[in-house]
């Protein structure tokens, strides 16, 4: 390899590495969004609006602050009984997500807590772990 190709290839390689690192790190921060798209979006919809009176909205839902301490258990084990969200009663059951790890649950919840106009404080992994230990 001669000097000329090195001076061209060198910066190009560095540039490529930087781009890859950037891509990788933004992917990592979007993990919650990806989890949401795979596990939640089919019901709660892309914009978090839910489905009329069938599936409650997660966007601007008062449930998120009122039942903050139960959110991790809800994601892992789902819910059978009717629940009230923003003053409306919902009858459908939500299935559990027992395949999601504690980190997954924290990530997907934190995505919900800050999206579509939601401004809830994020849950730490420790909080999620504590909640999961206390599920009944």
């Amino acid at each position: 390899m001669n000097k000329k190709t090195l001076t061209i290839l060198g910066p190009a390689l560095v540039g490529l590495v930087v781009v890859l690192i950037l891509l990788y790190s933004t992917r990592a921060t979007d993990q919650g969004a990806e989890l949401y798209a795979v596990h939640c979006q089919s019901c709660h919809m892309e914009n978090g609006q839910g489905l009329r009176g069938v599936i409650p909205p997660v966007a601007k839902a008062d449930y998120l602050s009122i039942h903050r301490a139960e959110l991790a258990c809800l994601i892992r084990y789902g819910a059978e009984n009717p629940m009230v969200v923003n003053g409306k009663t919902y009858q459908q059951a939500m299935p559990g997500n027992e395949q999601l790890t504690e980190t997954d649950i924290a990530n997907v919840l934190n995505y919900v807590l800050k999206s579509w106009g939601n401004e809830e404080k994020p849950l730490s992994l420790q909080e999620v772990q504590n909640q999961l230990e206390a599920c009944d």
Binding site: S42, C43, L51, R52, I55
Partner: peptide
């Protein structure tokens, strides 16, 4: 079916 976790809610949203 009403308990369908995958495509049904989206279908119902479109049918609406």
């Amino acid at each position: 079916f009403t308990t369908c976790p995958t495509i049904c809610p989206t279908m119902k949203q479109q049918m609406l």
